[in-house]
Design a protein around this nucleic acid. Structure first.
Length: 462
DNA sequence: TGCTTCACG
DNA sequence: ACGTACGTGAAGCAA
């Protein structure tokens, strides 16, 4: 392990917001400082061994189907051109579709589309983001086309073309996983970012109308990620890891009980906040409950929940109150955590990983409230990140011991709660349950960890 | 370089 | 009156 990497990791652990501050220090100084701050274990047992694995992931890369991408590129370019032409017709003028400024002029001034309820951006322009376009969609036929254009252009310019350009002569793309670039201890991925590859849309609407995308391009992108000949891709994702961590960390009796019993957590939440039997929960009730569960992990207020759920502010408030009434352990833990953040100026997860919150005691309510949300989210998100890191290390060790690592089993990607592997077909069947088991036992929570898995010859099948 | 927008967990 | 839900990276535009 190069000393520079050690220094970088050590410096970041000591001060995530100012990693460079420590770069001039000697490793010996940093290591004693790590010990003093109780970060020694995270450093030596997680980040350092992980650095080696991330380097190997980079070296291995992931195979993409360049012939397929080329065809996709041509098809997408053709569709973009047609959509552009049609939009110019409907707008009555050509303009730069990729310029939010020009688009807002065309939409709100030239076409005089009613912008009631459409907010402005911080620079004073009327926003043209997807949410705004959705609300004015019925007011002019060009709007729906612009939404489609945006979606396809995004895929084309961010995924199709860069992947083709970044693939090596062996048809493999090599992302760089950064270990010291997030405030919570998550990994990030860049050049290319392989942690935000589009997901298939699911049961999409029929795409028969003219001027609309003819296929699900998100699904197509995932199809382009393939296994080498004689190998399969295996995807293993932790089921609801953040909510399980929340249940465990907050010691909330009801939530722990639910996970122990293997209940559908969103349905359970719905049954609680609506005060109905879990068997009487409708799909709609479950949807609201799911939004609520996410919101709680993010530390949302009633306004945000109202917005994302479509409820009125009063209704949203009632739901949240009901939620914290039902999951009292969660409420108490959040209050305790915010108070600790105020007292110490930082929060930490169960492993002692820290996030410094400079603004937590500011008198500016907005900034303080922001810091409070970070305070209750960080211990959850960061422990989930630690768990998957520990799983990666365990798994790599096992296959190295067996002499299979990189030859028959390759770790390709780590996507927050999911690991993607390339596994030789001759050992696929016995390897899958092994990985699953290692992930589920990577860390002992008060609730079980559950892993969902799938395998196939390309990423879209999984 | 900052802003806007949008892809993911 | 203010759209503050957490964490990222990348593209194109405009200055």
């Amino acid at each position: 392990m190069s000393s520079e990497i050690k220094v970088q990791i050590a410096g970041w652990l000591l001060d995530p917001d100012h990693p460079k501050r420590f770069l001039d220090s000697s490793l010996a100084v940093l290591e004693s400082e790590l010990k003093k701050q109780g970060l020694e274990k995270i450093y030596s047992e997680i980040e350092l061994p992980l650095a080696k694995i991330l380097e190997e992931i980079h070296q291995v890369g992931i195979k993409v189907d360049l012939d397929f991408l080329k065809k996709l590129s041509i098809k997408a370019a053709k569709e973009l051109e047609q959509m552009t032409k049609r939009i110019y017709e409907l707008a009555g003028t050509p303009f730069n579709l990729n310029s939010p400024k020009q688009l807002s002029e065309v939409l709100y001034e030239k076409l005089k589309i009613d912008f009631k309820g459409v907010p402005k951006t911080k620079t004073g322009l009327r926003t043209t983001d997807a949410e705004a376009l959705e609300t004015i969609k019925a007011r002019h036929p060009v709007v729906a086309l612009i939404l489609d254009y945006r979606e396809l252009f995004k895929i084309y310019s961010t995924y199709i073309e860069p992947l083709r350009n970044l693939a090596g002569p062996d048809g493999r793309v090599r992302t760089t996983f950064l270990q010291t670039n997030t405030a919570t201890g998550r990994l990030s991925s860049q050049n290319p970012n392989l942690q935000n590859i589009p997901a298939p849309k699911g049961r999409g609407s029929p795409r028969s109308e003219s001027g609309r995308p003819t296929i699900d391009y998100g699904e197509a992108i995932r199809k382009a990620f393939i296994a080498e000949k004689g190998f399969s891709l295996g995807a293993f994702d932790y089921s609801q890891i953040e909510l399980r961590v929340l249940a465990s960390v907050s010691d909330d009796e009801r939530m722990i009980d639910a996970f122990k019993k293997g209940l559908d957590i969103h349905a359970l939440t719905a049954s609680n906040v609506y005060n109905v039997d879990i068997s009487k929960v409708t799909p709609e009730m479950r949807r609201f409950a799911k939004t609520l569960n996410f919101g709680v992990v993010y530390g949302m207020g009633s306004d945000s929940f109202a917005r994302s759920s479509g409820l009125s502010r009063e209704e949203a408030q009632t739901f949240i109150a009901e939620y914290f009434n039902d999951f009292n352990g969660v409420r108490q833990w959040q209050e305790k955590t915010i108070q600790a953040a105020r007292d110490f100026g930082y929060v930490e997860n169960l492993n002692g990983r820290r996030r410094i919150l400079e603004n937590i005691n500011f008198s500016n309510r907005r900034l303080a409230a922001e810091a409070e949300r970070m305070a209750i989210n960080m211990p959850i998100q960061s422990l989930a990140a630690d768990i998957i890191k520990m799983a990666m290390i365990k798994i790599a060790r096992i296959f190295k011991d067996q002499g299979l690592w990189l030859k028959k089993v390759r770790m390709l990607l780590s996507i927050h709660d999911e690991l993607l592997f390339e596994i030789s077909d001759d050992i696929l069947k016995e390897t899958i349950p092994l990985i699953e088991k290692e992930m589920e036992s990577a860390y002992r929570l008060k609730v079980p960890l559950k892993v969902d898995l799938a395998y196939g010859k390309n990423w879209a099948e999984l």
